[in-house]
Nucleic acid binder design. Structure first.
Length: 487
RNA sequence: CGGGCUGUGGCGCAGUUUGGUAGCGCACUGCGUUUGGGACGCAGGGGUCGCCGGUUCAAAUCCGGCCAGCCCGACCA
């Protein structure tokens, strides 16, 4: 049994998170490795999650007044050099095209690692008056950053994302935009992905190359590590000055615009995998699940055929009610299918066999929930007449359950610490709330000793004063900041 | 890019020490029996042993180089 289970299953998450993550990505058919180093193929099951994320986020962008556009993949190399910090930050990971059309190019083209520079160039052409502001544009695209240590979804050489780029008349408007979009990300993560996020500002050492202030949402994964899941930057007038993006104000004075940029990527899929998964495989939050409920008809011959008919009838009604449902009519045993869909993280499973047909109900089990004395999910009998109406309610309740569970997990693994020894222990399993002096060298020292980094200065943290957890000099932030190991 | 480990049918592995005509489990194909927690029987198909070169009568096995993957660091959405 155990050896059989081992052959068929995956390395338990509780045993080895890295091995579990790699196996689950392949076995659940989310993605595969591409032939070139660091590239990934997103398979239909994984891509459907991306499509759902896109739809949900895009709606939120539109609701907050943004419009979509597309900017080019290739950027003249010189553009990157116009903003000093920006090049410095990105040049180590640029892919550069030097030859094309059978000859060497006059000027190399970089494959965009992000689009601040091309967009800056275009905004300088489009903006001339305060009447043109704000400009609120988002782009869905792919970017390339030459990563030394790729991991599917978490860090790939090419990844999909959206990058919002806005231009405003003054700092206050741009800052309001920056913080608004951070809230959009946090709300999305909680409402759709069932992941509670800590919102906060990055310390100077962790700031985006070229930004004045960088904000982040940080989620806690099942192993207590942090994952930066979305970022929003106030770029000040740095790019306005580098690309001459200016406007004439009401008093006929020429002013630089204040810009922002904000992004969420396919890494968010990795966050969903790592925030909810368990030893049996994926656990998908219902609002991101490609399949929200799978119906498994049981039995063969007449009984089986009748079960299949009824399953399809119920599935059609669920579809009409807006539920993503799948009927598994494969020629495989029920037990195999149960395990298969559990591996794939489908939130609800309905079983429907001759006995249920007779009794007029289906048996519904939750992917994560109460277990019976055999350690199997409790199955609830739901009469046919109530089924279609109850599924959406059950999905909502299950969403809430996963969110609460993730929230409780984060609470349990977050502690206030004021002593160095306790700090080192705490960051090995979760988040530490501690005072810090704010010096980048001290951050480096902490990282060298514990592999933990400052994740953020939490927006909702309480005001407090103290001395640095590492070097005892006064705290720089007026509150405790969050440290943790990160993906 | 540094340090460690690993490359053998789709997946997981044995075989490498001591060179001698490539094997197991799962998956796959066909037929039959099965179907309420990873079914069974019979019959099949599939591998230039990561790549290149060397030693040898003979290389998965020994030697050199390269490539890829994983883990730990540095970089990062």
């Amino acid at each position: 049994m155990s050896s059989k289970k081992k052959d068929l299953g995956v390395t338990p998450l509780s045993e080895d998170v890295s091995a579990w993550y790699n196996e689950i990505v392949f076995k659940a058919e989310l993605a595969d490795r591409g032939p070139a180093k660091g590239t990934m193929v997103i398979r239909p099951y994984g891509y459907t999650m991306w499509e759902i994320l896109q739809r949900e986020l895009d709606q939120r962008f539109k609701d907050t007044g943004h419009v979509n556009a597309y900017f080019p993949l290739f950027i003249p190399e010189s553009y990157l050099h116009r903003e000093a910090d920006h090049v410095e930050g990105f040049s180590p990971e640029l892919a550069v095209v030097t030859h094309a059309g059978g000859k060497e190019l006059d000027e190399p083209l970089v494959v965009r690692p992000t689009s601040e520079t091309v967009i800056g160039e275009m905004y300088s052409r489009w903006i001339s008056s305060y009447r043109d502001l704000p400009v609120l544009i988002n782009a869905w695209n792919n970017v390339v950053r030459w990563e030394l240590r790729p991991r599917i979804f978490l860090r790939t050489t090419e990844f999909l994302w959206q990058e919002g780029h806005t231009a405003h008349a003054n700092e206050a408007d741009a800052m309001a935009e920056t913080l608004q979009m951070l809230d959009v990300y946090a709300e999305f993560a909680s409402t759709v992905a069932a992941i509670p996020m800590v919102e906060g500002e990055k310390t100077p050492g962790e700031r985006f190359a070229g930004a004045v202030r960088t904000y982040t949402i940080e989620g806690m994964m099942r192993d207590g590590k942090a994952l930066q899941s979305g970022t929003s930057h106030y770029l000040g007038t740095n790019f306005a000055k580098a690309f001459d993006i200016t406007y004439t104000d009401e008093n006929n004075a020429v002013q630089p615009v204040h810009t922002t940029s904000w992004g969420m990527s396919t890494r968010m899929i990795g966050a969903v995998i790592l925030a909810h998964g368990d030893d049996q495989g994926l656990v998908l939050p219902p609002r991101m699940a490609p399949i929200q409920i799978v119906i498994i008809p049981i039995g063969r011959d007449e009984g089986g055929a009748a079960a299949l008919d009824k399953a399809e009838e119920l599935a059609n009604e669920l579809k009409a009610a807006g539920v993503r449902v799948h009927v598994d009519s494969r020629d495989a045993s029920p037990g195999f299918k149960f395990n298969d869909w559990e591996l794939k993280g489908v939130p609800l499973r309905a079983e429907l066999g001759p006995r249920d047909l007779e009794a007029g109900h289906v048996l519904v089990a939750h992917r994560v929930g109460e277990l019976d004395d055999k350690g199997r999910p409790v199955k609830e009998q739901i009469p046919f007449a109530e089924f279609v109406e109850r599924v959406p309610t059950m999905l909502d309740a299950y969403h809430q359950f996963l969110l609460d569970r993730a929230d409780a997990f984060r609470e349990e693994n977050t502690s206030v610490v004021d002593e160095w020894g306790a700090f080192a222990d705490q960051v090995s399993t979760g988040f530490a709330l501690a005072f810090h002096c704010g010096r980048p060298e001290c951050e480096d020292d902490i990282k060298a000793e514990t592999s933990a980094t400052p994740r953020c200065i939490p927006t909702h943290g309480e005001d407090a004063d103290g001395t640095c957890i590492r070097c005892d000099t006064p705290s720089a932030y007026g509150k405790r900041i969050i440290f943790g190991r990160a993906y």
